[in-house]
């Protein structure tokens, strides 16, 4: 029995990890693009982006998952996301990436705006180009500023991945819950909690190490 549960939970956890990893992979760059949009000098773009960020941050991720999965099919009448579990998985990823990119964009924006203007001015008077100023001066200061808030979001994402089950993506909690129905036992569900604890524990350690690495300077 234990063996069966473990195999099943591992399978579910793999899906959880996939959602987690791919969401970060998509949301890190997309968030930066959104951040540039919301700080744009071009007003219409700025307000459009700010509006989108407001909607995404102001509504539940659960709702966004449902709308993104069912919406295209019902509104456009086409099978937008493809069939079966791979279609549901793609839809879930899209929802997660959009949602997290919006949160990340605000963190990036805060990080970029937090670097004093004098830093880039000092670079300018020393004859540096704008890209030299960004990569050699600003970037590391931004990273140092955003690691703690980013860390919070990343840990939250670990747990948010479980929401994917509302559109039947079989992640770890789904796997655990199956055993209530099939065998009438609840301990596998408790066991899923251990997976989350270990995973977020490892992430906390890694993030702490990164913060420590950046402690050699102060901003």
């Amino acid at each position: 029995m234990f063996q069966t549960v473990l195999i099943s939970l591992n399978e579910g956890f793999l899906k959880t990890l996939e959602i987690f990893g791919l969401t970060l992979l998509g949301a890190f760059p997309l968030g930066l693009i959104i951040a540039f949009g919301s700080t744009s000098q071009f007003r219409p773009l700025k307000y459009l982006v700010k509006f989108i960020v407001w909607v995404v941050r102001g509504t539940p991720l659960m709702l966004q998952l449902l709308i993104i999965y069912y919406g295209p099919g019902l509104l456009l009448g086409s099978n937008w996301w493809g069939n079966g579990s791979s279609g549901r998985f793609t839809a879930a990823l899209a929802a997660f990436i959009i949602n997290y990119a919006c949160y990340f964009s605000e963190i990036y924006r805060g990080g970029i705006e937090g670097v004093p203007k004098g830093q880039s001015e000092a670079g300018q008077v020393l004859g540096m180009t704008s890209s030299q100023i960004f990569f050699r001066i600003t970037l590391l200061q931004v990273i140092k500023r955003i690691v703690p808030p980013m860390g919070n979001e990343i840990i939250t994402l670990v747990k948010d991945t479980s929401l994917a089950r509302v559109i039947a993506v079989y992640e770890i909690i789904w796997s655990g819950q199956m055993f209530i129905k099939s065998s009438g036992v609840i301990w596998p569900l408790f066991f899923t909690g251990v997976y989350y604890l270990i995973f977020s524990g490892v992430l906390t350690l890694l993030l702490g190490r990164l913060e420590k690495k950046l402690e050699f300077f102060r901003v």
């Binding site: 004093p116 004098g118 001015e121 000092a122 008077v125 001066i137 590391l140 050699f216 300077f217």
Partner: peptide, 15 residues
């Protein structure tokens, strides 16, 4: 590059 500037708030690069 013809000019150098020393700022009131130093503006050294912290890293």
């Amino acid at each position: 590059l013809h000019f150098g500037l020393v700022f009131q708030s130093f503006n050294l690069f912290p890293q």
